[in-house]
Computed example of a mutant assay.
Amino acid sequence: MRVIAGSARGTRLAAPRGMRTRPTADRVREALFSIIQSRYELDGARVLDMCAGTGGLGIEALSRGASTCCFVEKDREALKCLRQNLLATRCAERATLLEMDLLRALPLLAGRGSRFSIIFFDPPYASELYTPVMRSLSSLELLEPEGLFIAESAARAILPEREGCLVRSDRRVYGDTALALYVLGEE
């Protein structure tokens, strides 16, 4: 796994051993960022990387010009690799780490008045987090009005077309990985 483009291009990213953390494949990240950059401006974007794992998505965004990224992760081994990756890519000064459960982190971020241009969500595929997280994002207003929420899942899993004010605008499948892109609509 490596950073594909931007200031940290080519930097290899550390990942924990075993299958507990499943980093987004380079080809999927490359396709995702091609989609993002064809529709949105990454320069100056505020990014939230939920279930961040090694931080590959958030670090890629920082490398391509995002101003800040908040990473939410609770696994100790993944956090160790995430810190190492932030240092290796020289992105640590623009990063915030929340070492906690995601469903506790979201109200905390909302309470701080945080709003994000782009939100990445890449939980373990078998997790039951998709619906509760989407409901929380919708009710807590963490996504900016012109923002983008991207949920990664197994290709066989079909995420809802709408959850609260989040409306699916696109879905792409790459092998066994699916990316669902959401924008804000009216409830």
Results as ranks from 00 to 15, higher is better:
I4T: 02
E60H: 04
V173E: 02
V183N: 15
E144K: 14
A15C: 11
C81V: 08
F121Q: 08
N85Y: 09
G65Y: 06
R64K: 07
G164Q: 07
G55T: 15
E152I: 01
R94I: 13
E128W: 05
L62F: 04
S138G: 11
R27N: 00
R76N: 03
M1W: 08
E187S: 10
T11P: 08
V133D: 04
T21P: 09
L79P: 15
T54S: 15
D75R: 12
R172M: 02
R135V: 10
T177K: 01
M1K: 13
D101P: 04
T54F: 03
G56R: 12
S38G: 06
A110S: 07
R17L: 14
L86W: 13
G18Y: 10
L184S: 02
F116T: 03
S114P: 13
R17D: 12
I119L: 00
G65F: 04
C81A: 03
L179A: 00
I158G: 05
R104L: 14
Y40C: 08
V133A: 12
S169H: 13
G65P: 11
L86T: 13
A88Q: 14
D49I: 04
S136Q: 15
L103H: 14
D122K: 01
G53Y: 04
S139G: 14
A88M: 10
R29T: 01
F33N: 00
G18L: 14
E161V: 09
L42A: 05
T131G: 08
S169L: 08
C91S: 15
A180V: 04
L62K: 04
L32E: 12
G164E: 07
R76E: 03
L97H: 13
G185V: 01
I4D: 00
R27L: 01
A95Y: 01
F120H: 04
A31M: 03
R171C: 00
A126Y: 03
S139L: 15
R162Q: 14
G65M: 05
S38E: 06
L97I: 15
E146T: 03
G58R: 10
L79I: 15
E128F: 06
G164N: 10
A157S: 13
R162N: 03
Y182C: 00
R46H: 12
L103D: 12
L148G: 05
F149H: 03
L184W: 02
I36M: 13
D176K: 05
D122Y: 00
G147F: 06
L148T: 03
G185F: 00
L137W: 04
F116K: 05
T11C: 15
I150W: 02
P123Q: 07
S7P: 06
S117Y: 11
